[in-house]
């Protein structure tokens, strides 16, 4: 479904150029659940921006559903690939009602039957029709993120790119949103790419996981390998032990994989 070969992204030009992603390759089959995990600045979100078409300066090849992608994407592409952002407070237009937010994509793609589609999409993410004419400021964080998921789903895409979809939410709300995403994946046979800094979230959602550090995929592994605590790369092992909680002895053994160079 998605094949990425030798993807490189550089921010800035000339002497100020910073490599954000370096020769990254991976593939996701149709209906797959692929996770990318890494710390801030590892380049994981940059990959999503390239896949979605937000970032238009990259090298390498990206093939989605058999089509080699150019920098510029067309309407048909956007109908196929949608994205959910991290911050539910920033991803909904503050002056648009939920109804307007959801009917906008329907209007862009001239799908018709806007009202029926909006009600159905709300229902699908577990929000009743009473939410339809509210403004984002009248919703909680979890409800906003549901609206964001509904907006992504209303075009009936086949691929959903999830950029830290629960990092800004309370844990109880995170569980609800993760359950929603799991349910949608099963019902609709979607393909997911989930990006997160939280190893537990990625391990819960995904079958295959890429671990990134400083713009490079240092290891790709199945979720079973994580459960067995048997990843190969020391960075992955360190990430794994860190995500299990605080342990004074373990911290003393943390290696510097070039963190904190200011």
């Amino acid at each position: 479904m998605i094949t990425v070969r030798d993807l490189s992204v550089t921010f800035g030009r000339g002497r100020r150029a910073v490599p954000a992603v370096q020769r990254v390759s991976f593939a996701v089959e149709a209906g797959g659940l692929y996770g990318i995990v890494g710390e801030s600045g590892s380049g994981k979100s940059t990959i999503l921006n390239v896949l979605s078409g937000l970032n238009r300066r990259w090298r390498g090849s990206v093939t989605i559903d058999g089509d080699r992608q150019a920098m510029q994407r067309d309407l048909a592409f956007h109908k196929k690939v949608q994205m959910v952002f991290q911050d539910p407070y920033g991803s909904l237009h503050p002056r648009h009602t939920v109804d307007r937010i959801l009917s906008e994509p329907v209007a862009i793609h001239r799908l018709g039957q806007s009202a029926a589609r909006v009600v159905k999409a709300l229902e699908e993410v577990g929000l009743g029709p009473e939410f339809r004419f509210r403004y984002p400021h009248q919703l909680s964080g979890g409800q906003r993120q549901r609206v964001a998921v509904a907006r992504a789903l209303i075009l009936e895409p086949r691929i959903l790119l999830l950029d830290e979809p629960t990092s800004a939410l309370d844990v109880s709300v995170q569980a609800e949103v993760l359950n929603l995403l799991t349910g949608l994946h099963q019902r609709r046979n979607l393909t997911y790419i989930l990006v997160s800094h939280n190893l537990a979230v990625v391990a819960h959602m995904c079958r295959r996981i890429a671990v990134m550090n400083r713009g490079v995929i240092i290891e790709e592994l199945g979720v079973e390998t994580l459960r067995d605590r048997s990843p190969q790369h020391p960075y992955t092992r360190q990430l794994l032990s860190a995500s299990l909680g605080y342990d004074r002895q373990a911290v003393a053994m943390l290696e510097e994989f070039d963190m904190d160079a200011y």
Partner: peptide, 26 residues
């Protein structure tokens, strides 16, 4: 650069729609 503008771009909204419907009201 707000996320809601990115989201609208990812839905395929053109610059005219973005400026008129999303940017101007704000």
């Amino acid at each position: 650069n707000a996320d809601f503008i990115k989201a609208a771009r990812l839905q395929g909204a053109g610059p005219a729609r973005l400026i008129w419907g999303h940017v101007m009201p704000l």
